[in-house]
């Protein structure tokens, strides 16, 4: 069994802010049925760009549900500028930490939030810069480099835990290794 913190268990068993939000004016989706987890985030943003309400619908494991629940609690009351600075680390910290292999659940929260903010502002999220490394989970080399640097990832398994990259068919594991080595070489 996973070692979940009491906060994760609590947010899984008693999730806050579940369901569609009537009058939502920003929606962000991340993940998919095939990935095994997906999150749909609903925001109600006022004229001052402040998030006055947030709800979610999540398909996924306990940590996916808990991460979604935590995310809505964190961002309620924030301005969009403040919310846009929220990272997966903040979600994980809010829950007292997540098992390493479950970090991608918090990344999913961060991605859905980014998309919801872009949705409100009417901004098209640009095609992701960089080259796709993991086809299964749509992860680019730049995202891997970013995650490796920010989180001090050491191995391909770490990269998979954080980004899911390499966790599907596994064809890209060698390429991930190359990207990882390149980052390490540069220090």
């Amino acid at each position: 069994m996973w070692e979940y913190t009491d906060a994760v268990k609590d947010h899984f068993l008693n999730p806050r802010n579940v369901g569609e939000l009537e009058g939502a004016n920003a929606i962000g989706e991340a993940g998919s049925l095939s990935c095994g987890d997906a999150l749909k985030l609903f925001l109600k943003v006022n004229e001052n760009e402040r998030i006055i309400d947030a709800t979610f619908m999540t398909f996924g494991c306990a940590s996916a549900v808990a991460s979604s629940s935590a995310l809505t609690e964190i961002i309620k009351g924030m301005t969009l500028d403040e919310a846009s600075k929220i990272t997966n680390g903040d979600i994980s910290d809010f829950l007292g930490g997540l098992p390493k292999a479950k970090m991608h659940c918090s990344v999913m929260g961060q991605n859905a939030l980014k998309k919801a903010i872009a949705d409100f502002r009417g901004v098209q999220i640009m095609e992701k810069p960089g080259q796709i490394v993991c086809e299964c989970f749509d992860v680019t080399d730049l995202e891997i480099i970013d995650a490796v640097k920010k989180n001090g990832l050491e191995t391909t398994e770490d990269v998979t835990d954080y980004l899911k990259a390499g966790g599907g068919c596994g064809n890209c594991l060698e390429r991930i290794e190359e990207v990882l080595e390149a980052v390490k070489a540069k220090g």
Partner: peptide, 30 residues
Amino acid sequence: AVEGESILLMLDREGICASSGSACTSGSLE
């Protein structure tokens, strides 16, 4: 439309032991 680990953890609270073929219980993602 639901995920196995979540089902198992809720069943666990009822004292029911089962298992799943879902990714999230095994550590792999597939």
